[in-house]
């Protein structure tokens, strides 16, 4: 399967996919944190993050500053890889397989083909089967999730609206995917063909979901998750792990906490990181979620997703 990219070992597709989803299994029940430098990566690891996402600007900054958002600099990614023992992920633009090849050659543990960055291709997502590095992709509904899985994604994250601190769209899309999965499980065998047509997804994957009642790869949640209670909410709605982007290291708008110069702001970031990790583990114990919430100093101010014009939404990128 992996003839066309010239990187790494050649896995047959089933062994390759098992290794990819195998790493996703290891990340379940945890928190993956966006980090922009080594100091933040250390705070994330120290707080108990299961992985970090290395990027140049978190979504809240991309939103505030505008411009073209691209893959992070290899120098930054290598520094962060050298500073942590936990897996390091990095983002490539939708369809930008050359950025993905670059990330694979750096040895990142997971590539996020992400709508947070400016899309590079308006028609085609990356052929993820052509890589040994596993991919995670965003999805708003079951059809989109299954299209990404058919392209080789080893993990799905339901999309929220990144960089807002507003969880509403993460909730909508998680509920949508869970509801669409349930709906498939009650169909007759001969109704699955039309279901595949309606979902615009491959019949074999639709049939697999109808039989098992779940996605064939782990399903994590991302986008707008900013508090311990947000993490608990998404886990209760069916997320298997939480991505936190701007919720830990940002104060308001596009301004990050100054964790290197200000001791207070450093403590604030640590308190948020620890609290979200604790609330994700004990998502079904409101007492512990309350304790975690109480331990948080400050919070990301956030931006109501409803106030964002349709054309400025990130979640509608990709199909």
């Amino acid at each position: 399967m992996t003839e066309n990219n010239g990187f790494g070992k050649q896995h047959d597709s089933s062994a390759g996919l098992r290794l990819k989803t195998g790493l996703a299994e290891m990340l379940k029940g945890g928190v993956i944190m966006d980090v922009m430098n080594v100091a933040q990566a250390r705070i994330a690891e120290e707080a108990g993050a299961v992985a970090v996402m290395a990027l140049e600007r978190v979504p809240a900054m991309i939103r505030a500053e505008g411009g073209v958002a691209r893959m992070a600099s290899p120098r930054l990614i290598k520094e962060i890889m050298a500073a942590c023992t936990i897996p390091v992920m990095a983002k490539a633009r939708i369809g930008h397989f050359a950025e993905a090849q670059t990330l694979q050659s750096l040895g990142v543990d997971f590539i996020d083909e992400s709508e947070v960055l400016t899309p590079a291709d308006e028609q085609h997502h990356i052929d993820k089967h052509a890589f040994t590095t596993p991919f995670v992709c965003g999805a708003k509904n079951l059809g989109e999730a299954l299209r990404r899985i058919s392209e080789g994604a080893a993990m799905i994250r339901t999309k929220g609206e990144p960089g807002t601190g507003d969880v509403v769209h993460a909730v909508t899309h998680m509920r949508t995917i869970v509801r669409e999965i349930k709906a498939l499980t009650v169909l007759r065998e001969d109704e699955l063909y039309a279901a595949a047509k309606n979902l615009q997804a491959p019949y074999e994957l639709v049939r697999m979901v109808a039989q098992s009642g779940k996605l064939p790869v782990p399903n994590f949640s991302a986008g707008g998750i900013a508090t311990p209670a947000d993490a608990s909410l998404m886990m209760q709605l069916g997320a298997e792990t939480i991505f936190v982007g701007s919720g830990i290291f940002m104060k308001e708008g596009g301004t990050p906490l100054d964790i290197e110069k200000s001791d207070d702001e450093r403590k604030e970031a640590i308190s948020r990181a620890r609290a979200i990790v604790l609330a994700t583990l004990h998502y079904d114990d409101p007492k512990i979620v309350a304790e975690a919430s109480e331990s948080v100093i400050g919070s990301m101010k956030g931006l109501a997703a409803a106030a964002i014009e349709e054309k400025n939404l990130m979640q509608t990128r990709g199909w």
């Binding site: 299994e25 290891m26 379940k28 108990g48 299961v50 936990i86 897996p87 990790v277 604790l278």
Partner: peptide, 14 residues
Amino acid sequence: PGGESTTFLKHLER
């Protein structure tokens, strides 16, 4: 199980 041993330790130390 498998997972991240640093994360396990953070939880266990609490």
